[in-house]
Design a protein around this nucleic acid. Structure first.
Lengths: 150, 150
DNA sequence: CCATATTGCTATGCCACATAGCAACTATAT
DNA sequence: ATATAGTTGCTATGTGGCATAGCAATATGG
């Protein structure tokens, strides 16, 4: 009955979805780091590799659009991944501005293990949610942001 | 069984909750800024004011704990809010290390309007979700992070 | 009394993100 | 053909949130 001191109305901080999104996202980012530091992959770099893996030959501009990034921030990350021998940049034949991105053989070989690690990470920070709840959460999150851009 | 590299199954980036959390949170942060730049409040500073408003006399260390922040990062923000005349720091009578935080009269007067603005912001970036879906989302998000710390 | 913990702070670095501006290139309109 | 405009990828730079390291003052418990 009596509320735990933070008892408040609908305007209470704890009732704000934005705040809880931020807290949950921070926890996820932290847990991601725990799982993927060994592989030296951060959420952004992993996301880039995952999309390139799913859509080989994708253009850098399209990758930016899919990940909601600015090319100014993408450029040094692409350089880093190329430096590490994980991606290749091939000049487009018809439009010489364009770079087509693909994973190297090394990265393609490593991706399944990295994807398994990420799945472990998700299973860990989503421990308290059933698989039905996870599916619901996924649907609601995508309702928020998908097609804000596309 | 064996997944081709282009496996768009459950390991696809779009199916990862962590990624979708990050995207949704980014959208929320962006929309928050649109609503609250006039008031010169960022998510963190608003959260601090909201908690102090809900628990006047709270200690800085407790505020850190509630918001999941390090005191190293809290300190300059408290200084900023004090500088702007929004909070007061009073020395604790029994423990002289402790500062008790409270809103100034000015801030207390402004809070209702700020809370209404934040509610407008939430209504905007959550417009695709019904109120039932919002309640579900809130519950699932809190399931992820609450009591990871407390 | 002394070792330890707590509170609040400064200094500093990392990372994600933003804007501004640029060079190369392509597409379009006249 | 040429001027204009848009696209692509990049560098430089600033900001904000978060992390660690280390410090001084204070409180606590053996």
């Amino acid at each position: 009955m009596d509320e735990p001191t933070t008892a408040l109305g609908e305007d209470a901080l704890d009732a704000q979805i934005g705040y809880n999104l931020r807290r949950a996202s921070a926890l996820a980012l932290n847990d991601f780091a725990v799982e993927m530091t060994e592989a030296s992959l951060r959420p952004v770099t992993y996301a880039m590799l995952a999309v390139i893996d799913e859509r080989p030959g994708i253009r850098a501009a399209e990758l930016c659009r899919l990940l909601g990034m600015k090319s100014a921030n993408m450029a040094p990350l692409l350089a880093e991944l190329e430096e590490r021998g994980l991606i290749e940049r091939d000049d487009h034949a018809e439009d010489r501005r364009v770079q087509e991105l693909s994973l190297t053989v090394v990265a393609r070989a490593a991706m399944p293990a990295w994807r398994r690690q990420v799945r472990r990470h998700e299973d860990r920070f989503l421990q308290r949610l059933t698989s039905v709840e996870r599916a619901t959460l996924l649907r609601l999150l995508r309702l928020i942001w998908v097609d804000e851009v596309e």
